[in-house]
Design a protein around this nucleic acid. Structure first.
Length: 270
DNA sequence: ATGACGGATCTAATCCGA
């Protein structure tokens, strides 16, 4: 039995924040770190820093300037085909096999401002991405003898009332509209997936992983949303130490933070 | 809840995020 710490973080430029990433790895010692919005191509990725930090096994899906996801691991990884969720083939998914389980790292489209797919192509793209996730994980849940699966990343949807600072005021705001939150809940239901954060944290407890850059004082206004998720499938969920779930809110502070903070969990792998 | 911030890019002004 190996205890593994798995963390996910929308880093909003891995090159700009590589020193913060290195410090986080040094302090929190994740065995696997999944990043979103690396905002670079594969060749530009700061591999050396990850080697130095003890996570030398890296799978990168990059593109110029925007999006981009990566998985960095202490243990050897086997790269898998990314799940086919993005109709535009953006770098929004990377998948590996590591320590006997499967790991998907996702960056779901934000969806822009207007929550109407008829007039907003980006919102239509987000809804399509979510429906593809539902169909894929539903089909996978029907399969026998698949490895345990963990799905992490910036899902860009805050599903529950207390995953946002004001349920009432955000009902018409992209990330918390009913069509999105219903879509997310259907992925979990049809895929037989567990949203690890909410197993131990009751529905009335506020949980945020993102705070806008535009607030004058993010901490004082505390208008956050829980956009970053760690999910496990039926065989993955029992491997999770539920008490280990952490939101690393401290990372929203200090110099040049990302607008998202890391989320982590400990897994008992074989 | 809009766009006060912040990132990348054809380094100047624009696109993008959520």
């Amino acid at each position: 039995m190996t205890r593994l710490s798995l963390a996910t973080w929308n880093i909003n430029s891995v090159r700009l924040r590589i020193d913060r990433v290195s410090a986080f790895i040094k302090r929190e010692k994740p065995d696997i770190l999944c990043l979103q919005e690396i905002k670079c191509q594969e060749a530009e990725y700061p591999l050396k820093a990850f080697e130095k930090a003890g996570l030398p096994h890296v799978a990168i899906a990059g593109q110029k300037g925007m999006h981009g996801v990566a998985i960095a691991s202490r243990h050897p990884i086997e790269r898998l085909d990314p799940p086919p969720f993005c109709q535009h083939n953006h770098a929004r998914a990377v998948a590996v096999k590591v320590a006997g389980f499967e790991l998907h790292n996702l960056y779901v489209p934000a969806g822009a401002d207007i929550p109407d797919p008829a007039v907003n192509d980006k919102f239509a793209h987000k809804l399509d991405f979510v429906e593809r996730m539902r169909a894929y994980y539903a089909a996978r849940a029907r399969k026998k003898s698949v490895p345990p699966l963990f799905i992490v990343g910036d899902i860009n949807i805050a599903p529950h009332e207390n995953d946002v600072w004001s349920h009432r005021q955000l009902l018409t705001v992209v990330s918390h509209t009913p069509v999105e939150t219903d879509g997310l809940m259907r992925i979990l239901e049809d895929g037989k997936l567990t949203d690890i954060a909410r197993v131990r944290h009751p529905p009335e407890e506020k949980l945020y992983t993102w705070w806008s850059y535009r607030a004058a004082d993010w901490q004082a206004s505390n208008r956050g949303r829980r956009l970053d998720h760690i999910w496990a499938d039926r065989t993955g969920a029992p491997m999770v130490d539920l008490a280990s779930y952490r939101i690393h809110t401290k990372e929203r502070g200090g110099e040049k933070p990302s607008d998202h903070v890391p989320v982590s969990v400990t897994i008992d792998a074989v």
